[in-house]
Amino acid sequence: MLGAEDWTAIFLSLKLAGLTTVLLLLIAIPLAWHLAQTQGWWKTPLNALVALPLVLPPTVLGFYLLILLGPKGWIGQMMQAVGLETLPFSFNGLLLASMLYSLPFVVQPIQAVFSSFDKRLLEAAMTLGAHPLDAFLTVVLPLSKQGFLTATVLGFAHTIGEFGVVLMIGGNISGETRVVSVQLYNHVEAMNYQAAHGLAALLVLFSFAVLLSLYYLNRGK
């Protein structure tokens, strides 16, 4: 039912979603901790900024990325000046776009558990002589497991479902930017409904399984 091109697209999507999630977790942990702890005036604007991709149409993001990252945009020109390739039409470009696009899905669940974290536990650990970083790694992180699981699952699944941004900056290149949602779109456009059904059904199953496992995981709370 699925052709070789379909499998290429599926693996590409998995690779993109996996890398995006790992990189986002690395950024999200300090960011979420800061947002949960700070009382500074920037807390609210920063919260709004992180949540922006939730409400922005992906086309807005795609449009700005195409303009800014291209050889005529200032980011693209900076990259070329230091000898780097411009990002549109490349896997790295999609990776950057996906990280922006899925940012709130990873930051917000972690921020939620960090906010409800009982600070006295951390203070107790430090009174017992733990270095702050040590205390964070051994006390805060294990107790925030639930938030990390949710963040990982949502970030991964949301990236798999990414479409609009990829359509605008991807250029439909097999093995590089043609992810599974774009491949499905190609099938529909070319009126290969049979092939489209295969991928569409797979995505429905995948999304359902993701949500199901998420609800089971959170039921234990």
Partner: peptide
């Protein structure tokens, strides 16, 4: 969109 790719210099 093909035109956009070229006019923005991305291609």
């Amino acid at each position: 969109q093909t035109y956009d790719f070229v006019s923005t210099g991305n291609a």
